[in-house]
């Protein structure tokens, strides 16, 4: 039979690529996470993790860092995105660019800049480690929170707000009962953009000489010690956290996936 080209076949290279370098690495990680250094099935790595106070401390510490970073980003980004979205059309698009522009500058260079400023004010950065960590994380991830919030808030129909006002709702009620619920998809996608990176981006800590570990640093140090098994265990724990976050965020952004179902074939 003669070979016939069809458009479907264009997906083959990418499908192979995805299998080899996205699916297979995960399988390898799972393999290493459930075996010991001799390659035998074992759960000792997990027992080790959940028994060690130090490890659980790291998990707790990174969760605290991630939650605080996310909340602070949200508190700064929400009003910012709201003001931008409600400003006059022309100036708001240009202003938004100013807020997302830092995303395109290498983050290690941006953290270097912030670090120099902090050194000027604080002298020794070790004095306020926790504060500095949160500050640098917020500085790094803020643009990633502003963008999705802005996208949701610009789509928000002003007539809903007007209707609520006409029907006698107080300003605080309009916000809590109309604006906030309608901006949930933006909040959720902003949170997913910030929470996980702030739990794993240990370079920010490294750069400001924070001696404490977060989850990402554990992978880094196991990696340098060629301990694939324990490194994989940490990856699995992070993957579970990722799955939970994705599952939650999918529930709130179902509208977008709806569109995917009913397209032309």
């Amino acid at each position: 039979m003669k070979y016939r080209f069809s458009r479907k076949q264009l997906a083959i290279p990418y499908a192979i690529f995805l299998f080899l370098f996205v699916i297979l690495p995960l399988l390898v990680v799972i393999y290493y996470a459930f075996t010991n250094s001799e390659g035998k099935l074992s759960f000792t790595n997990y027992v080790g993790f959940f028994r060690s106070g130090e490890m659980l401390g790291t998990l707790l510490y990174s969760t605290v860092i991630a939650v605080l970073t996310t909340v602070i980003c949200l508190l700064i980004a929400y009003p910012t995105a709201f003001i931008l979205a409600k400003a006059k059309m022309r100036s708001s698009e240009a202003l938004l660019l100013l807020f997302v522009l830092p995303m395109w500058i290498n983050f290690t260079l941006r953290i270097t800049a912030l670090k120099e400023i902090l050194t000027l004010f604080e002298g020794n950065l070790a004095k306020y480690q926790f504060f500095n960590t949160i500050l640098c994380m917020v500085y790094d991830f803020l643009p990633f929170m502003i963008l999705p919030l802005y996208n949701t808030l610009t789509k928000l129909d002003d007539s809903y707000i007007e209707a609520a006002e006409d029907l006698g709702a107080k300003k605080s009620h309009v916000f809590l009962k109309v604006i906030l619920p309608l901006s949930v998809p933006g909040i959720v996608s902003g949170v997913t953009m910030v929470f996980l990176p702030s739990m794993t981006n240990y370079v920010v800590l490294d750069m400001i000489y924070n001696s404490t570990y977060i989850m990402g640093s554990l992978i880094g140090s196991y990696f340098s010690a060629y301990d694939w098994n324990n490194g994989s265990v940490i990856s699995i724990i992070l993957l579970i956290i990722i799955c939970v976050i994705t599952a939650i965020s999918n529930r709130y952004t179902e509208k977008d996936t709806d569109e995917r179902g009913n397209n032309l074939k």
């Binding site: 690495p25 990176p197 739990m199 794993t200 990402g216 990856s235 992070l238 993957l239």
Partner: peptide, 12 residues
């Protein structure tokens, strides 16, 4: 997380 992607591709 980028750390996990990097780590998993690397050990593969």
């Amino acid at each position: 997380a980028d750390v996990v992607t990097g780590f998993s591709v690397c050990i593969l």
